[in-house]
Design a protein around this nucleic acid. Sequence first.
RNA 1: GGCGGGGUAGCUCAGUGGUAGAGCAGGGGAAUCAUAAUCCCUUGGUCGGGGGUUCAAAUCCCUCCCCCGCUACCA
Length: 585
Amino acid sequence: MTDARYYITTPIYYVNDKPHIGHAYTTLACDAIARFMRLDGRDVYFLTGTDEHGQKVEKSARDAGMEPQPFTDRVSQNFRDLAKAMNFSNDDFIRTTEERHKRSCRAIWQKLVKSGDIYLGTYSGWYAVRDEAFYGEEELTAGPDGKKTAPSGAPVEWVEEPSYFFRLSAWGERLLKFYEDNPLFVLPQSRRNEVTSFVRQGLRDLSVSRTSFRWGVKVPGDEAHIMYVWLDALTNYITAVGYPDESNPKWAYWPADLHMVGKDIVRFHAIYWPAFLMSAGIAPPKRVFAHGWWTNEGQKISKSLGNIIDPLKLIETYGLDQTRYFLLREVPFGNDGDFSHKAMVGRINAELANGIGNLAQRTLSFINKNCGGKLPAPGQFMNDDITMIGQARGLLELMRASIENQELHRAIDAWFDVVVWANQYIDRHAPWALRKTDVKRMGTVLYVLVDVLRHLGALMQPFMPEAGAKLLDQLAVPSDERSFASLGGKGELRGGIPLPAPVGIFPRFIEDAQRKVHPAHAMVGRIYQRRSDGVYLRLEKVLRELPDTDDAILMFRKWPTKEEVRLKHSHLIIDLVESQVELEW
RNA sequence: GGCGGGGUAGCUCAGUGGUAGAGCAGGGGAAUCAUAAUCCCUUGGUCGGGGGUUCAAAUCCCUCCCCCGCUACCA
């Protein structure tokens, strides 16, 4: 039996960055999981926040002519705004500059001291003042004058400063044992390999304090030192659930079920963090999952290329739930993925508009027109009906298993399979034909479809909360019966209940170039051209051979009948919304 | 260099010994409830190269080529 509690975290985001797709993606994945778990009856605590200490922040504030605190107040707001725009359902938003966090950091520090894993030493290395960063010996190149230079070209000098160290070197064996006992601690598997091989190479002690800047949590008992950023940052995960007050009711959420991270920070979460915690006598988290990165139209994303993807822009262009769906659907979760406009439009039109959207629309508008707007009561179920309903009702279990292992893409895969099967089902039983021959049977088919839609609507809520709600509204599912507990037979809709007139959930994405011709009535479709040799050409082929007419040709309201095309075999008949146009062929 | 992962249809990938698969794209057809949305059928691959084990290899072994990740103190 799984614990009812579920504690899930995002990394805290470094406020020096502007929120970009990477931030949005990590939190989105957590949001989908958190929402799923809540709907599935779990007691979820979903945490995100901002990391606000460190030298870079101190410097950025100074450059902006501000004190660090008001500066971080401002930039951390960007991340709260993003959470709102993306419809994230985090239960808490932690900031490392909060007093609760500083208290927590001091407490864990003292525990580490007590366990003997902290000692005072000297941190030394090649430091580039210009970059404000340390470099490893092997990264450096010797300049013409024999002076060493950083990869950035900045001159470096050998610097030594007093520093407290964490005795990480003593934790190698215990960590390896921990990984062995918890084979799913790091996922995906490939990251786990990296982590264990890293640890097997042998660990060096970790510098956990600095004296070169002031913006951070002071080391208890030696205020010349600031706690090293990773110790500070990682500690947020226990701060938020009350640490060091273990009598805080929220402490029951610890250990976290899942730390979701980008693949770049696996090591800190999978090696340092459990070592810190074990040393402090605190249970390590249950899982660290490292997801991949996005490229943009096949290109690596970088500031210098200027191809950073702004999540707010995506929402504006494609819609919120469409964006959420794409990001979670397009890529096996954990892998890198490519964002492309074409792929996005493909998903929106093929799966959202034509798949689930049209399925709902064709079913509900049929009921609206032919059943007086009331859900028909089902008659005797046939085998095929039972199979269809079974597929919908079996979805929860499949999705639950996938979500439990962060296989978000599999969950959506399974969900979309049912969409496809339902479209096959409606065609197989053709209620539009039954209307003339067997109205009772027609009602049963429609009822089955509505029950399937009820499951699809409920189960899409974690990924697309607004669209899911919209669909359930149209099915007249009461707001208190939208959790997974009401799936299956429990929340079964009764025949005869009135269903509101349907409205499209997902519009097709129409390219701007097409939209501007007749914005109000734009439609895209296929048209055939009959060539003199009697061969019918598809629209795309016709377009290729008719230059400069794309926009006009794409706009038509009625599919021309073969008869029409045949009569005017040397012309294309285009029935435009505004006017009748003939084009020379 | 070391460790790990991968190279399968035009594209993205599934497939760990038994007649090569899915989605998308391409081609043909049906239907007309629906956001011209859907459904059915279908073209397409010497499974990176070479060698080996086996009755049988995408799958196991050897070797070569290519791609990617990790190889510690910026979050």
